[in-house]
Amino acid sequence: MNIAFPAFFLLALVLTGFIFLNAFERRENTNLEKIPFSSASARALVSSGIIHLILLSIVHQFILPVDFSVSIKLITGAKLTDSDISGLQVDVVNIVFYFLSTYIVAYILGKFLQIAVLKFSPYKSSKFAFDTPWYYELKGKLSEEADAEIIKISCLVNSGECAYLYYGYLQDFYLDDSGQLDRLVLSDVYRRNIQDDEDLPIGKIAGDQQDQRFYQIKGDRLVLKYDKVVNLNIEYLYMYETPFEEGKTEEV
């Protein structure tokens, strides 16, 4: 028990940083920042250090004096005296309450910072943008000028001996652990066999003839695995109200 307690205490301290980072980098069950574990651990250590420094200062100054010597003994694994142990026993509720409070504060702080980053640095090209390009591409946050309303997806999917072109509006997308696209969810989907294009004479792909090549897929959502997609075309569509209604003239 004596050997394990410093490790447990350190874990409780560092957990604050991991909670903070998880709240900051996770959105809609997806990690926005893709960094190696070693780097994430270093960031968690620094974050927990800063959070504890701030919170301990507040607690020590305004709520309850903190015996830092016991904390240092716990971290370094130095032997505790009887008075140290009896002091810890008296304050065990306060210590538990402190750690629970830091976890809650770390979570709120992480979410608050995430909201601030997405609000004040919202585009892919922004200085503090997260390192997840697909997030910005498929959320339509490329630049201040691009304020599209919906994304039309056209993609070529190999299915056995045939290659199909799928057209539809992007509804949802899922990223894998490395930040790459995993699945696309489309709605209002049409499919056409690319072989049909070869059978048509050049210059005849127009009007009704073009429509006949499309097969409407019945259903609300079509899920496509990204590893089956050969080509992906992303088209941002803009929508706006008609400038003038019929029968009305512009007033000057």
């Binding site: 959105r27 959320k139 919906i150 994304i151 949802d172």
Partner: peptide, 26 residues
């Protein structure tokens, strides 16, 4: 994750006639 879907796009897709016309645009 939810993909881009602006206010007008939402309004159009919630309307049966609008959705049909938007579908045809594909």
């Amino acid at each position: 994750m939810k993909a881009l879907m602006g206010k007008i796009a939402k309004e159009v897709r919630q309307d049966s006639k609008g959705r049909e016309e938007l579908r045809a645009f594909i």
